[in-house]
């Protein structure tokens, strides 16, 4: 669905490369996580996958970028955005500013595409239910809290029904409950056949929802593979992403020979219950 080969990129007016020799292969209908320290180049990669680089930002881009069968750099932005949706980092800026209610804000993209009124209303209702924002529909997008605005921003892209959806830190302003809900929504979208690329650093949730994870560090992809394998890699500490407490506890337990050496440390609660099952309530602690 997404295929990047040997992609390098430098922003205009600089010879410093933000990304070098990136290869990325995302199959259709999966949730793929991309993690990296701040400043590692995540937002840049998100913009490349969604066509905003080079169509908006310019700069020096090389390599092949194919998304949903489209050669993005050689296509136009208008075509790109009908194949890939991008949820940008700042919900405040994702909101158009032109609409006076959340309801109309959600429909903004569909109005631009000339979708029939009845269908718009149905799709607004569906996406509002999906993200639990039905009660906000008649409020002004600017009278919302940061977290509520973020849900509206995500909904405003989901409603576009692009085959590929790229999300750049979509849960930065949400509380744990809201974050979990957004991840559940991602899984639901995947089940309906949509391909999702999510730039996040909530390792535990990525383990639960993503099939594959890639790590960006030093302007490159330094590790790729199944979520549990990549997210339990001790090098995550060095790459400033950090592992979960489960992983650290299991690593320390192995070091102290309390657990047998394993090939894959646990990342999530479920992984750990299995790993530590021998310690189930042995005696009063």
């Amino acid at each position: 669905m997404i295929k990047l080969s040997d992609v390098s990129y430098a922003y205009p007016d600089t010879d410093h490369y933000t990304l070098t020799n990136v290869d990325l292969d995302v199959p259709q209908g999966e949730v793929v996580g991309i993690v990296g320290a701040s400043g590692a180049g995540k937002t840049t990669l998100a913009k490349i996958i969604s066509g905003f680089i080079p169509h908006v930002d310019g700069g020096a881009l090389s390599g092949r970028i194919e998304v949903d069968g489209i050669n993005l750099p050689e296509s136009t932005l208008a075509i790109a955005v009908s194949h890939v949706g991008l949820v940008i980092q700042s919900p405040f800026n994702q909101i158009s500013g032109a609409k006076f209610t959340v309801r109309e804000e959600l429909a903004f993209g569909l109005e631009n595409q000339g979708v029939e009124r009845e269908e718009m209303a149905t799709r607004v209702g569906e996406v509002a239910k999906l993200l639990g924002i039905e009660t906000l529909l008649d409020r002004s997008p600017y009278a919302l809290s940061g977290g509520q605005q973020q849900l509206v921003a995500i909904a405003s892209m989901i409603i576009m029904r692009t085959p590929v959806l790229v999300m750049d830190e979509p849960t930065s302003q949400l509380d744990p409950g809201g974050t979990r809900m957004v991840f559940d929504v991602m899984s639901k979208l995947r089940d309906s056949g949509i391909t999702l690329v999510v730039f996040e650093h909530k390792v535990e949730l990525l383990r639960e929802h993503a099939s594959t994870v890639h790590v960006i560090a030093d302007h490159q992809i330094v590790a790729s593979g199944p979520a549990r394998k990549v997210l339990s890699d001790p090098r995550l500490e060095k790459w400033a992403i950090g592992t979960t407490r489960y992983t650290r506890a299991a690593a320390l337990a192995e070091e102290k020979s309390l657990l047998p050496k394993s090939t894959e440390l646990p990342v999530s609660l479920e992984d750990s219950i299995d790993v530590f099952k021998g310690f189930k309530n042995l005696k009063k602690g």
Binding site: V81, N93, A107, N112, R117
Partner: peptide
Amino acid sequence: TDVEERSTAMEARAFGSPAKRTSLIP
């Protein structure tokens, strides 16, 4: 900076689409 970023977001929501616009609220 906001205006620049917002225009990116608007493009992602098909603001540049050649289609004839419709409107949610009659």
